[in-house]
Computed example of a mutant assay.
Amino acid sequence: MKLILTADVPNLGAPGDIVEVKDGYGRNYLLPRSMAIVATRGAEKQVAAIQRAQRARQIRDLGHAKEVAGQLGGLSVTVKAKAAGDSGRLFGSVTAADVVDAVRAAGGPALDRRSVDVPGQIKTVGTHQVTVRLHPEVTTDLDVAVVGA
């Protein structure tokens, strides 16, 4: 099955890439989650729009990605959770968008929430490690301190 990716899919491709996948993977996973569209002649215009939007959000090159990774390395990020119980368990969880907002509030660079990988769900108070994918060749780990309000 020939598909055009609309989202970044690990180990498959980036938005705008035309990929060939097995029918079941495309029909049961990629299409229902809006991660891809079926490749047709009319979809070429959509590919161009997707790639323009990606270039606007993307970190420009490898050197820029390393510079942003250096900025993130010296940053102390604190996320204030809405509420926590006596045992330190949160009433809710910390999402990638919360981490991006905390990085921006700490004076860090503007990140795309899709580039932040939160392992599972952060549901406890304390220090947690998240991975930030800045470039296909550059990833960095970021320590996030979660405190209850």
Rank of each mutant, 00 (worst) to 15 (best):
A102H: 12
A84P: 05
T140M: 09
E20I: 03
V103M: 06
R104S: 14
N28A: 02
G85R: 06
P119Q: 05
D143L: 02
K80Y: 12
T127G: 00
S34K: 11
V132Q: 15
Q58C: 10
D141C: 06
A53Y: 01
P109Y: 03
E44Q: 11
T95I: 10
G24Q: 04
D117W: 00
R60C: 01
Q129S: 03
V138F: 13
A106Q: 13
V19Y: 01
E44W: 03
E44F: 02
L142T: 00
V144P: 12
G73H: 14
G13R: 10
T6Q: 05
R52M: 10
G42D: 04
Q58L: 11
S34G: 07
N28C: 04
A106T: 14
Q121L: 12
E137W: 04
E67A: 14
A14P: 00
G73R: 15
K45V: 10
S76V: 13
L142E: 00
A145H: 14
R114F: 14
G26S: 07
Y25L: 06
G73A: 13
V99I: 11
L111I: 00
Q54K: 14
A83E: 12
K45S: 12
Q129C: 03
A7V: 10
I37K: 04
V47I: 15
D17C: 05
H135G: 04
L142C: 00
R27N: 07
G85T: 07
N11H: 11
L134G: 07
A106F: 09
L5N: 05
I59N: 11
A145E: 15
K22Y: 11
V116I: 03
L30V: 09
L30K: 01
L90W: 04
E20Q: 14
G13Q: 08
L90G: 06
L12A: 08
R41N: 04
V77R: 13
D86G: 07
I50Y: 03
A7T: 01
P32K: 02
L111Q: 06
D101N: 14
A14K: 12
V94T: 05
R57C: 10
A84W: 03
Y25R: 01
L62T: 08
P32N: 05
I18V: 15
A110V: 15
R27W: 04
P32S: 05
D98T: 07
P15S: 12
G13T: 11
D141R: 10
S115D: 11
D23M: 11
G148M: 07
G92Q: 09
I59V: 15
V144S: 08
L62N: 07
A53M: 01
T78E: 11
A81H: 08
T131K: 00
L72V: 10
H128N: 12
R27Y: 06
Q58P: 00
M35Q: 07
A7R: 08
S76F: 10
F91Y: 15
P136M: 08
G107E: 07
G26C: 09
V100G: 06
G85C: 03
A106K: 06
H64V: 15
L75Y: 14
T140Q: 14
P109T: 10
